Simulated scan of single mutants.
Amino acid sequence: MPRKDTCKRRRIVLYAVRSAEFTTSDDRQTVYIVETDHDTYLFILFTSEVERNLYLYAREEEVSDEVKENFTNLANELSFDPEAITYLPKVPVPRRLPCLAPCDCPGDAPRVPSPPRRARPPDGLPRRPYGARSAQRQGLLFRQLFEAESFTYTYLLADPKTKEAVLIDPVLETAQRDTTLVKQLGLNLLYAVNTHCHTDHITGTGLLKQLLPGCRSVISRDSGASADILIREGHALKFGAFALEARSTPGHTDGCRTYVLNDQSMAFTGDALLIRGCGRTDFQQGSPEALYRSVREKIFTLPGDCLIYLAHDYTGQTISTMEEERTLNPRLTLPLEAFVELMNNSNLPKPKQIDFAVPANLKCGVQDVAV
């Protein structure tokens, strides 16, 4: 990974590979200066609350096929459709890495032209579409489901074209409901995924495998549980044109995984990060220090408009954003020492189902369950 330096005054990240990033409360722009044997090109990845576009300052007819191939590879690395690159008139490229706002840091240079922006929604309306409708605009079929006894959210994601699907954190008592929905939508459930070994309910993966042959159970290899797939850090679960990247986020348990959609528009955080809270750390090899590092280094580093989908909520909330939790989460905005003290003195009651849920979940989807 290339070395990076940070200008703290403006939160600009300057990479040795000649790129620069500037983040404001409204948008994020990352500049890539691509050098070839014959010319130098300027790329800008622009992300705001209403759009995500990749701009190339060059005339398409003047770009050679070899250079276009390099641009395609860069776009793929950014999880961006190469066919959707917007070509704009060529502009002079600064010799030094540009800052996208004037400051007195060493990287200061003439400002890069701002890409064209779409009009913002009227005041009072959400600037980012949420939930299933938002996913549908991305070509993703998405459902958020709920189990009332343990307050557990289950998530169904699918590619409408290939019909391949993933189910995250299914519950035994609602496995039949989930099966019915999968069949009604004509989907092929590839994976039943657990974000971790739960203590408050028995996973539905074992029953789902019987009801939907071909479905495979998934859990972290660090969980100590059995499953068809013991997933590693960085592994991707692919379904159609989409994929979920597994990020290791221990602290609530040793085997917690956060699953991030390939365009980083959604993150399924399990119990590691909750809305204005986090999972407890007083059992199953829990560690407040590990949880703090996990959230700060693996989750809060996602884009601010990334939608957070959690395993549980007890107050009726269903969704949050990365920027909200980075700024408003009363636990994870604390310094590490204060967070550790808080978590170590929570004095929470023992989970009601832990004695029979954990042994069953350690067999995560390979246990025999009567249909």
Rank of each mutant, 00 (worst) to 15 (best):
T327C: 13
P82M: 08
E49K: 14
L97M: 12
V340Y: 10
S265N: 13
L244R: 01
A246D: 06
I229Q: 04
A132D: 14
P2A: 14
S287D: 15
R128Y: 09
S217Q: 10
R257V: 15
T269P: 04
K161L: 15
G131P: 05
Q284M: 15
G234K: 04
K209Y: 07
R257K: 15
G365V: 04
N76W: 10
V193H: 01
V260A: 07
D282T: 04
D178Q: 13
P160K: 08
A360N: 13
S294F: 06
P113L: 05
L189E: 12
T301C: 11
R276Y: 14
M266S: 11
G186R: 04
G316C: 01
A311C: 08
T24C: 07
C306N: 04
P349L: 07
P303H: 11
L45M: 13
T47H: 06
L167R: 07
C105L: 04
A236G: 01
F22K: 07
T174H: 03
P110G: 03
M1R: 12
L156C: 09
T6H: 09
P359E: 13
P82F: 07
A75E: 02
N188Y: 02
V34I: 12
D26V: 03
P106W: 10
E83S: 12
N347Y: 14
N345A: 01
L187N: 03
L140P: 01
C278K: 03
G186N: 03
H38C: 08
A148L: 09
R120F: 01
Y309K: 11
A311M: 09
A225G: 04
T333C: 02
R331P: 00
E341L: 05
P349F: 12
V17W: 12
L274Y: 10
L328W: 06
V182D: 01
L332Q: 10
L207H: 07
H252Y: 12
A225T: 00
H235L: 08
